[in-house]
Design a protein around this nucleic acid. Structure first.
Lengths: 221, 221
DNA sequence: CATTTTCTTGACCGCTTGGTCAAGATGGCT
DNA sequence: AGCCATCTTGACCAAGCGGTCAAGAAAATG
């Protein structure tokens, strides 16, 4: 995983090694969990001696914490689709597309996050209570506005958000199961497109947003 | 966790201790993952000496395997709702109810399963490839039959199944996150009922099954 | 009651773990 | 060049791990 070793400045060395270590750590943590992962294995994947990891990240937990925080930021970025939208067809549709795209390109990160939350979030509980609560409350307001404007059915916005999170992240977290059920092959580009189409169709139609709006090319991305 | 110790037959002792150990193991595995769990901690939760665990379950992996297999059977039972149904409103509606009920009463088991699959199913891959594939293929046939009969929209049955699995299991696997977003309180009975109602409503309406059918008291359970 | 089988348990073992350290290598700076 | 700060690494350590074992307690058997 380590690249060529031509002379570098100290800053470059630091940044590159931190990146190498974080990528290796994300991969190993996602495959083995915090407890099952070992610093030795992360070091092997990174192509560095174990002692070098402890030079950049003093403890296993500090390394893990950094990995989880990086993922958290990726999650939040997907919310942009929501904010700039004029209505549910566009806003929710784009949000589903963005979250499914993250599941496709960043599955390891999604699995680390899922494991962390399933284990009662020992490392990032403060983030759940502050940032996530604020984010959720603000989107709920948007959804409630759309409901009051008659743009979608009056369902509990939380139940809708949970369904979107669950379904989109499922394709990352349970990717192995999906792959097994797909004749042991990863989803093709065409299959991913079909997933996006069906997920948007079921959810949008399910909350009373007409399918015509979905098919509208203005809302394609 | 160990109950009173009045005289018992060998058979009773064996059954009771296996049960105590399995329940403790499910709890500990679900909170720490396979790697993070320790036999000592399971022993402490069970209220038995560690050596006693190894008398009933020779290795940590054999204990874990038993826990996962038990959960797998619970999952399969929920499928009964599917088979005895006359159409999608009843079949899918009851299936969603059954799976949400498992998430409510058996969240630890769901989390162990999720962790196992996320880590590429090192222990139960054979089950995925045999039993799960067969189960899925057979339900897909049922769904395709309903589609051909015009009882629901022509969507890929896999995408529907994944959405149901993802959404229902989310309430167990991410229960901690949901609780945090619910003002740090577990969902009340009324909230669980509302979840069941909304999830069924969105999904059934989303696949073109009329809501009137859902409200039909004949389909209530 | 005597004997056998099953169950219980503290002590123990080899091994791996996260983490330390000190000596050396390398780039930065004047 | 020479000195300092940063980076690298093999060797090492205490702690905790999964698993073993042998001796004793308790139930089954006849």
């Amino acid at each position: 995983m380590k690249q060529e070793s031509r002379p570098q400045t100290k800053k470059e060395i630091r940044l590159e090694n931190e990146r190498i270590i974080l990528e290796a750590a994300e991969k190993v943590f996602s495959e083995a969990g915090f407890g099952g992962a070992t610093m030795q294995l992360i070091a092997d994947v990174a192509g560095l001696p174990k002692a070098n990891l402890h030079y950049y990240f003093p403890t296993k937990e500090s390394l893990y914490r950094k990995v989880v925080h990086e993922i958290f930021n990726v999650w939040l970025l997907a919310a942009d689709s929501f904010d700039s939208a004029s209505g549910p067809a566009e806003g929710i549709g784009n949000y589903i597309d963005a979250k499914l795209e993250i599941s496709r390109t960043h599955p390891a990160g999604s699995r680390v996050w899922a494991t962390e939350v399933m284990h009662r979030a020992p490392v990032i509980q403060d983030y759940l209570e502050s940032t996530l609560v604020e984010w959720t409350d603000s989107r709920i307001e948007v959804l409630e506005g759309w409901i009051e404007a008659g743009l979608m059915d009056p369902i509990d916005p939380r139940h809708l958000l949970y369904m979107i999170w669950a379904t989109t992240q499922h394709y990352a977290d349970f990717g192995h199961q999906i792959e097994t059920l797909n004749h042991a092959k990863p989803l093709s580009d065409e299959q991913w497109d079909a997933v996006k189409k069906d997920v948007k169709r079921i959810i949008l139609k399910g909350i009373g947003v007409s399918v015509a709006d979905i098919a509208d090319p203005r809302n394609a991305q």
